[in-house]
Simulated assay, not measured.
Amino acid sequence: MSQLFERIDTVFLQVKTLDEAIPWYQENLGFELRWRQGGHACMNVAETPLTLWETPSGEAHTPHPYLAFNFYIKDLEACERHLQERGVQTEPILDHGVVKTLDFFDNSGNRLSVCSW
């Protein structure tokens, strides 16, 4: 454990608009809005919140080009069913041996991932 830092405080993810992203994360992933100020909105996930950052006005949104983090869940198949029932675009579950992953996309086109082991 680092003697300097206690934890990762938040993870940032750029989205097209907060007005569209906040309800998407609430309705599809069950995240609660902690706060919203200016072009940022903090969503409660678990111990590390997700802070959505709105693409500045006049700029084109480019979906996140790589996976910078993933979520964890015990039942990956149930998560897949949950997302698919809500019309969320998913990719097939991948078995990496010790860990399985499921990639999916938010309404801004960002690739997100959830893992299980």
Rank of each mutant, 00 (worst) to 15 (best):
S2E: 14
S2W: 08
S2C: 11
F5S: 06
E6P: 01
E6K: 15
R7V: 02
I8N: 10
I8H: 03
D9L: 11
D9R: 09
V11P: 08
V11T: 12
V11N: 02
F12T: 11
F12R: 11
F12S: 09
F12Y: 14
L13S: 04
L13H: 04
Q14N: 12
Q14D: 08
V15F: 03
K16L: 08
K16S: 11
K16T: 14
L18N: 00
L18V: 07
E20V: 08
A21M: 04
A21N: 05
P23D: 11
W24D: 04
W24R: 09
Y25T: 04
Q26H: 12
Q26N: 07
Q26R: 13
E27Y: 07
N28W: 04
G30F: 03
G30E: 10
G30D: 08
F31Q: 01
E32R: 11
E32V: 00
L33I: 12
L33W: 04
R34A: 13
W35V: 01
W35P: 00
W35T: 08
W35A: 10
W35R: 07
Q37Y: 12
Q37G: 05
Q37M: 11
Q37K: 12
Q37T: 09
G39N: 10
H40V: 05
H40R: 09
C42E: 15
M43V: 07
M43L: 13
N44R: 14
N44I: 12
A46M: 05
A46D: 12
E47Q: 15
E47A: 12
P49T: 07
L50I: 03
W53H: 10
W53Q: 11
E54Y: 02
E54M: 03
T55G: 01
P56N: 02
P56F: 02
S57M: 00
S57R: 02
S57C: 00
S57L: 06
G58K: 06
E59R: 09
P63C: 06
P63N: 05
H64L: 12
P65A: 01
P65K: 01
P65V: 05
Y66G: 04
A68L: 11
F69G: 04
N70F: 13
N70H: 15
N70A: 13
F71R: 05
F71H: 09
Y72T: 10
Y72C: 08
Y72M: 07
I73F: 06
K74S: 14
D75L: 06
D75G: 07
L76Y: 04
A78P: 06
C79H: 07
R81H: 12
R81M: 07
L83F: 13
L83G: 04
Q84Y: 06
E85R: 14
E85S: 14
R86Y: 01
R86M: 09
R86S: 06
G87Q: 12
V88H: 10
Q89I: 11
Q89C: 10
T90I: 13
E91Q: 15
I93V: 14
L94V: 15
L94Y: 10
L94I: 15
D95R: 03
H96I: 03
G97F: 02
G97Y: 03
V98Q: 08
V99P: 00
K100Q: 13
K100H: 08
K100Y: 02
T101A: 09
L102G: 01
F104H: 07
F104M: 10
D106P: 02
N107D: 14
N107S: 12
S108C: 08
G109Y: 00
G109R: 01
N110G: 08
L112M: 08
S113V: 02
V114S: 05
C115T: 07
C115P: 00
